[in-house]
Design a binder for these strands. Structure first.
Lengths: 308, 308
DNA sequence: TAAAAATACTCCATAGGTATTTTAT
DNA sequence: ATAAAATACCTATGGAGTATTTTTA
C-alpha cells in the first residue's frame, strides 16, 4: 500500500461526482442532501488534498477541468466498487435477495419477459426485480455506471468488458406477406432466393438491425427506405405487403399471431443471434445472476416454440 | 449510483486490511498509528454496516471468516484504486516526478540496469526510481497489491491482466565450454545438433528456466540434475565443463567475459523471450511508464551488442 | 442586479485517546 | 495467569448547519 492514510473520503468523492453530473454546487448539494456550504468546503478540501482543481467556478456555470475529467472517472470507479463491497456483503448475509435491476433490449423484452418474469418470481421470491427496456449501448453504459446489475442482450453487439452467460442461440427466419413468391416452397429458403428482394428493417440503434442487415448484404437483398421502430410494426408492415423481413425466432409466436405473415426457415448457415445475460466483472450479484440466467435459459424454448 | 451515502469509510477499510494482514488487532492498530480500541471500534462499525463478521476473534488469534476473505479482497481493491486516484492527481500536477517502484527479474536486472539506470536518471531527473529484483510471480503479485508501479519481465511468463510495452526481443544463444564439439562449426547451430546433449538449466521459479526447457524438450536434449541459481553461476559451470546451456543474448557480453565459454547462435526458428515493461491497468503512472519504457528500449541494444 | 459559490461562525457528532474489564487459552 | 480484544468514558477535531459576503455574467 502506498499511502499511510488516505487524504480524502468517500463522501468527498460522492460530492465531486454529484457536481460533475449536475454542473452546479447547489443542485449537487441538494442531491447529496447536505447544505451548499458543506459541499463547497468538502470539495475545497478534496481539491486541496489532490493538489488539482477539479472544477472551474463561474457565477453562472461550473465546468469540469481537463485533469478533473480524468480524476472524476477514477472517483466514479471507486464509488462503484464501494457500492459493490456493500452489495457483496448483503449477498453474503442473505443470498438471492434484495433489489436487482436488469436491462433488456427491445427485441427481446416483449417476448421473453411475459414468460420469464413469473418463473423468476416463483423461483426467487426474495429477489425484487426491476426491468428496464433500452438499446444495447444505453444498457451497457448504465451497467458500467452501476445503475443496472445485469442485462439481457445479444452477444453480437459491442459490449465491452463484461461477464456473460449464454441463454440461447436465436435463429432468424423470414417473414413474408401471404401469397408472396417467397412464402411457399419446399424446405428452408436458400440465401440466393433473397437477391434483389425488398427487405424492411428496424431503426438505427437496434442491434438486431445490424445483424439482419449483415445477412441482407450477403444475400444482395435491397433495404427499403422506411424503417420500423419495433418488431411488432415490422411484422404489421410486412403483412401489409410492404416487403419481407427477418425476425428472430423468439418473436415468431407473438408476431405471426398478431400479423398475417408467413414464416419460413432459412437454409444453413442459418443467421442467428446469441442471447446472453451479462454483468459487470466482479459484480457482487454474479452468483445471483448465474442462477437467474439458468431460469431464463429454461424460459427461452417455452417462448420460441419449435416449428418445422 | 446505488447508495445515497456510503455506510463505511476508507479508513475503516484500511483497518480491516491491516488486521487481515497482521492477524492481530494490536499490531494492525500499531501499523495504522492508532490505538487498539480506536481500531476495534471502527471495525465493529464496519462489520455492523456490512452486516457480516469479517474476523473471528479468539484471545490468542484472529481469523478471517470465509465471507470476510471475499470482502477483504474488495477492500484491497478499493484502497488500491484510491491510491491510484491520489497518484493520478500527483502526476497531473507534476508529470514524470515522484517515486516509482519497479521490479525486474533476476535474468534481466544485472545486465540491463547498469546501463539503463544512469540513462533514466539523466532523462527523468525528477523521477526517483527504486528497483526490486524478484521472480516474475512475486513481482506480479506486488504489482497487483500496489507495492510496485511497474515491472520488467518476459512476456512468455504468466502475467495476468496488465498493460505492457515491448522493450526487445531477446534471442537465446548456446554457451558451451571451449573445445566442446558444439563450440565450433559454420553458421548457426541447428536444433538437431542438441539431441542427447547434456544441458544445464536455472532453478525452478525463474521464468527463463521454463523457456529454455521448452526449447530443450523440442531438441530432445537431456537436462542435468544440478540446477544453477543465476545465469552467472550457470555460465561458470559451463566454463567448468559441466555441459552446455542456453543464455539470453542480453547476458552474453557480461557472462562470456566473466566465464571462459564459447557462444554460438542458434538456427531459425531462433528461440527467444520478449522483454517488456508491464504495469497495472489504469495505473496513474501509465504515461510515465511509457516514457520510461522508451528509454529502456534504447538501452537494450547498448547491452546486448550484436555479434556475428 | 441576481443567482451562485465562498466565507464566517457555531455546534455537535464522532473518531480517537486513556483506563479498565472481559475473555480465552 | 496472561495476552489480547472489548467496554467505558472523555476529549477534541472537523463535518455540517445558518447567516452573510463576494463574485461575475
Amino acid at each position: 500500500m502506498r499511502l499511510a492514510s488516505h487524504p480524502f473520503t468517500l463522501r468527498q468523492l460522492q460530492y465531486a461526482v454529484a457536481v460533475a453530473e449536475t454542473l452546479s454546487f447547489r443542485k449537487a448539494a441538494e442531491r447529496c442532501a447536505v447544505s451548499q456550504p458543506a459541499l463547497s468546503s468538502q470539495l475545497a478540501q478534496l481539491e486541496d488534498a489532490l493538489g488539482v482543481k477539479l472544477f472551474e467556478r463561474g457565477a453562472k456555470r461550473v465546468l469540469v477541468t481537463a485533469p478533473g475529467a480524468e480524476l472524476l472517472e477514477r472517483c466514479r470507479r471507486i464509488l462503484v466498487e464501494a457500492d459493490d463491497l456493500y452489495g457483496a456483503a448483503q449477498q453474503l448475509a442473505e443470498p438471492l435477495s434484495g433489489n436487482l435491476r436488469l436491462g433488456v433490449i427491445p427485441t427481446i423484452a416483449p417476448y421473453l419477459l411475459p414468460v420469464a418474469a413469473p418463473l423468476l418470481r416463483k423461483r426467487f421470491p426474495r429477489l425484487r426485480l426491476a426491468w428496464r427496456e433500452d438499446k444495447t449501448a444505453d444498457l451497457m453504459s448504465a451497467l458500467r455506471a452501476g445503475a443496472l446489475e445485469g442485462a439481457v442482450v445479444a452477444l453480437e453487439a459491442e459490449l465491452g468488458e463484461v461477464e456473460q452467460l449464454v441463454l440461447a442461440k436465436d435463429p432468424f427466419v423470414l417473414a413474408a406477406p401471404r401469397g408472396h413468391p417467397l412464402s411457399e416452397g419446399p424446405g428452408p429458403l436458400p440465401l440466393s432466393a433473397l437477391a434483389k428482394e425488398d427487405v424492411l428493417l428496424l431503426d438505427e440503434g437496434h442491434c438486431f438491425r445490424a445483424q439482419a442487415l449483415a445477412f441482407c448484404n450477403r444475400a444482395r437483398a435491397h433495404e427499403l427506405e422506411f424503417r420500423a421502430t419495433s418488431l411488432g410494426t415490422l411484422a404489421q408492415m410486412v403483412a401489409g405487403g410492404a416487403g419481407v423481413t427477418l425476425l428472430p425466432e423468439l418473436s415468431v409466436p407473438t408476431e405471426s399471431k398478431r400479423a398475417s405473415v408467413v414464416i419460413r426457415s432459412l437454409a444453413a448457415p442459418v443467421p442467428s443471434r446469441t442471447l446472453a445475460l451479462v454483468w459487470r466483472k466482479r459484480s457482487p450479484l454474479a452468483a445471483s445472476l448465474r442462477a437467474l440466467g439458468a431460469v431464463l435459459r429454461e424460459a427461452y424454448p417455452k417462448v420460441a416454440g419449435r416449428r418445422g
